[in-house]
Simulated assay, not measured.
Amino acid sequence: MLTSVFCMRLNTYGVVIGWLGVIFSFLATILLSVALGFVDEIAQEIVKSAQKTDLTVSEVRTGLIVLLSVYLALKVINLLASAMLVVGTVKERHLLLLPWLINNGVILVFAIITHIGVWAQVIGSQMPFLSAVPIILISVGILVLTWYLYYGIYSLFKQIQASSELQRPLIPPATQQTNSYPSYTKI
C-alpha cells in the first residue's frame, strides 16, 4: 500500500482529490444543464454542419437529450461520490470512500477498454511506426497515472479501515471482562 501520493499524505491527497472532483463535477453539472436548455439550437447547428443530409433536427435533438441526460446523471453521481470522499477522509470513515472507489473503478475499467481500442486502431492503421509511438506512450502514461491516483485512494481506504478496526473493535476479546450481563455459557 502507498503511504503518500505526489509527496502528500494520504489524508491530504484524499481531501484534495475529493474537492477537485466536487468542483469539476459541479461545473460540469452546470454546463450540461445549460446545454440541455439550449438543446434545440445545438441540434439545429449540428444538422447544418453535418455532411449527411438524412439527419433530421428531431433525431439529433432526441440523441442529444438522451446523451446529455445520461452524462448529467453520471456527473451528479460523481459529485456525490466526491463529496462523500471528502467527508469520509475528514471523519475517517472508510465506508464513505466506497462510492468514490466504485464509481472511479468503473470509469477505470472503461478507460482501459477505450485505451485498448485506441491502441488497436493505431496499430491497425497504415500509420508509420515512429508516428504511432508517441500516441501509444501518451495513452499508456495517462492509464498508468489514472491507476496510480486510484490506488492512492484505495490505500487511504485500507489505512482508514485498519485504523478504525484497531480503535473500535466490534466484539471485545474473550479475555477482556466487560460490565455487561453475565454469560451463562461458561458453566
Results as ranks from 00 to 15, higher is better:
2 L>I: 10
3 T>R: 05
4 S>T: 14
5 V>Q: 06
5 V>M: 11
9 R>Q: 11
10 L>G: 08
10 L>A: 02
14 G>K: 06
16 V>W: 07
18 G>H: 05
20 L>R: 07
21 G>L: 04
23 I>M: 02
28 A>V: 12
30 I>A: 08
32 L>E: 12
32 L>W: 03
35 A>M: 15
35 A>N: 13
35 A>S: 13
37 G>T: 06
37 G>P: 02
41 E>K: 00
43 A>P: 02
43 A>W: 01
44 Q>W: 00
45 E>F: 03
46 I>P: 02
47 V>C: 03
48 K>G: 05
51 Q>C: 00
52 K>H: 02
53 T>W: 00
54 D>Y: 12
54 D>H: 08
55 L>Y: 14
55 L>G: 04
56 T>Q: 01
56 T>S: 03
59 E>N: 04
60 V>C: 08
60 V>Y: 00
61 R>A: 05
61 R>K: 15
62 T>E: 05
62 T>N: 06
64 L>Y: 01
64 L>E: 09
65 I>M: 07
66 V>M: 10
67 L>F: 11
68 L>S: 04
68 L>F: 10
69 S>A: 14
75 K>A: 12
75 K>T: 15
75 K>S: 15
76 V>A: 05
77 I>M: 04
77 I>R: 06
80 L>K: 01
82 S>K: 11
82 S>F: 08
82 S>G: 13
83 A>R: 00
85 L>G: 09
87 V>K: 10
87 V>T: 08
87 V>A: 11
88 G>A: 03
90 V>R: 13
91 K>G: 00
91 K>Y: 05
92 E>M: 01
95 L>P: 00
96 L>S: 10
97 L>Q: 07
101 L>S: 08
101 L>Q: 13
102 I>K: 07
104 N>M: 02
105 G>R: 10
109 V>F: 15
110 F>Y: 04
111 A>L: 03
111 A>S: 11
111 A>Q: 08
113 I>K: 02
113 I>P: 00
114 T>G: 10
114 T>F: 05
114 T>W: 10
121 Q>T: 03
126 Q>V: 04
126 Q>K: 12
127 M>G: 09
127 M>D: 07
128 P>L: 11
128 P>M: 08
131 S>A: 14
131 S>P: 02
133 V>K: 10
133 V>E: 04
133 V>N: 02
134 P>T: 14
135 I>S: 13
138 I>A: 11
138 I>H: 02
138 I>E: 11
142 I>S: 10
142 I>L: 11
143 L>H: 00
145 L>H: 06
145 L>T: 10
145 L>A: 12
146 T>C: 05
147 W>V: 14
151 Y>S: 13
152 G>A: 14
153 I>F: 00
154 Y>L: 10
155 S>R: 06
157 F>L: 01
159 Q>A: 14
159 Q>E: 15
161 Q>C: 01
162 A>C: 02
162 A>M: 06
166 L>Y: 11
166 L>T: 14
168 R>G: 00
173 P>A: 15
176 Q>T: 05
177 Q>E: 10
178 T>Q: 13
179 N>E: 07
179 N>D: 14
180 S>I: 06
180 S>D: 09
182 P>N: 06
182 P>L: 08
185 T>V: 09
187 I>F: 07
